[in-house]
Design a protein around this nucleic acid. Sequence first.
DNA 1: CTCCCGATAT
DNA 2: ATATCAGGAG
Length: 210
Amino acid sequence: MMKRDDKVLKIIEILEKEFPDAKIRLNHTNPFELLVATILSAQCTDERVNIVTNELFKKYRTPEDFVQVDPNELERLIYSTGYYKAKARHIIGSSKMILEKFNGNVPDNMEDLLQLPGVGRKTANVILSHSFSKPGIVVDTHVIRITNRLGLVNTKDPVKIEFSLMDIVPKDKWVLFTHLLISHGRNYCTSRKPKCESCPISAYCDFARK
DNA sequence: CTCCCGATAT
DNA sequence: ATATCAGGAG
């Protein structure tokens, strides 16, 4: 049996060749736009989030804009991403807290980010990784599913998975690793009908061997 | 644990 | 018809 660490390195090597352009797909031009886009991305494809933010950011782009927006107007603009009432509340609430507690800037540390309504560890790690060069393992629905199938972890608890992966993935590969798994999840290791026959890492996968 | 929720693939 | 999509709050 291969050591988990060597298995991870091999998986990264293969997926890097398979997905050379793996990177964040949520369109944004600054930390605040990334925060809004990531809140909207809950249980929604990032493709749809980009369609919505493309229009949304034409009218509203800053925390100052969002604390003044009519909640009904915001709900209407983000309606197609689902959970639109909660997401509108979170975007407005986060904007308010950013202005009142954080001097108008998106926080650059985990503790402060987690105080924002609608922001959990997944969203916080996306922002820390991409806006502040503070690498984190982003554990989303794809990462939960794929790391369990591969046999890298044996739990559905996102926090346990995050810390477990921090142990077995080299820190300089954390951000890359999550993007590779997400690309892999979209193209091969889908939730419902995974393409194990053509999967490039099936040799390292417990699920594919069953 | 349940609830939030529209769009899309199967 | 139903499962799933870059989750988080209560």
